[in-house]
Design a protein around this nucleic acid. Structure first.
Lengths: 227, 227
DNA sequence: TCAAAAGTGTTCACCGTACACCCATGG
DNA sequence: CCATGGGTGTACGGTGAACACTTTTGA
């Protein structure tokens, strides 16, 4: 006979996703208008419930896919939120995940009731979702200094200036142009292309790509990413 | 009518605690012999189930208290583990916490089926608990470099050498005596006592205390702990 | 008097930071 | 020809790491 834990409480386990994007100047978050009670019609993170036959990572990816059509996205588990009355409808704990997506290459979100908000101009958001967002930003700030995940938020080809703007918007502070470029170049994990992006200036600025191959082989040789 | 989420799966939510202690030379973890099926009689982290009317922090403290009689302990949520078959008896997700306790001031554990193991000499442990432990050590290493939580693992009065041994055992590497003491002193958050500890040498070594008052007031003035 | 741990400063290399001017181009 | 953003290098101070000898005292 397989033993079981008979007298213990079973609880709803939700997964909520903080989806980050970057658009020219601003770090953004994708929110949806909730289409069910409670709080129907209010802005919310993308969420859903964990099913018996899937783990949290799978659930997070499923929910992200259902609500945006996006797949194969960088995600990381953030934290479990468990205040007893966090959801007024029913006792629910929620494990928050955050994801990084590239807004431009995004299959348009027209079919979804979702909208991008700058992290500096967020609307009112339900439940403890604001706390989740704060924690996600904090984690993201830490993470970008230890891993080259910023590139997840940019198109495949990007300019140094875009990369700098991205880091500035994540870290919430201005960075020195020369120091930033020196640091990035010293990492030696970018490929400088011959192409220029002409959309932002008359001179044009060179495009770069993240060299994942090189990065991985450097990692194997004891390289430590640090920004 | 209060809405609810009728068709969603409800799941058992466990809390498992990685309890760290420090004893002279070694970082240790408290394990118990499980007294129920499955895996009865095997070594396990201290765990229990989340109840409907408590949040995860409360549950973690309750479980720690039930199994050790200890209260008012430093704890931090670590991660949610959710592989579908992680517990063979029944679908369960587990939110891991880690705690720091001072072994010496410990009300003896004689009444509990618990035992301290050096992190370098762990026995076979059930389920995904080894993974939890690895993650806890990693988090602890990070945390001690950003917050003065090492003192949680030491008696109120301790010697510089003890403190250094503690950091060495957490970080898993030897540290230079002079550099370590210089760094600690430059933080200026310890009180040097007139007393000496005579138990470890003929000369005796001065005892110190963590000055929590001073640390907090420094924090308010923008001080950043960094070790 | 000797063994064993405690205590104490300085030097050097490297990294992070501050900082200003010329370039290329489209209008 | 000029306005706009792109691109480039150096100097300085501070921090982290290496390193060896003297002191104390119980046995």
């Amino acid at each position: 006979m397989i033993p079981s834990y008979n007298n213990e409480d079973k609880i709803l386990v939700a997964v909520d996703c903080i989806i980050f994007g970057f658009d020219k100047e601003d770090l953004k978050i994708l929110l949806i208008k909730r289409n069910f009670e409670p709080k129907k019609g209010h802005w919310s993170l993308m969420g859903g419930f964990l099913k018996k036959n899937e783990n949290l990572n799978v659930a997070a990816n499923r929910i992200l896919f259902q609500l945006t059509g996006l797949d194969d996205i960088y995600m990381e588990q953030l934290f479990a939120f468990s205040e007893v009355n966090r959801d007024p409808a029913e006792r629910t704990i929620s494990v928050a995940y955050y994801a990084l997506i590239n807004i431009k290459e995004d299959h348009s979100l027209d079919n979804f009731p979702a909208k991008w908000f700058s992290v500096n101009e967020l609307p009112e958001i339900i439940f403890d979702h604001p706390e989740m967002i704060q924690r996600a930003i904090k984690r993201l700030r830490y993470r970008v200094s230890k891993q080259p995940i910023g590139f997840e938020l940019l198109p495949t080809k990007f300019t140094m200036r875009q990369l700098q703007k991205l880091y500035e918007s994540i870290l919430g502070q201005k960075l020195d142009k020369r120091n930033f470029i020196n640091k990035i170049n010293s990492l030696d994990i970018l490929i400088k292309l011959k192409e220029k992006d002409m959309s932002s200036s008359r001179k044009g600025s060179f495009l770069y790509m993240f060299d994942e191959q090189k990065y991985k082989s450097k990692l194997e040789n004891g390289f430590i990413f640090k920004l």
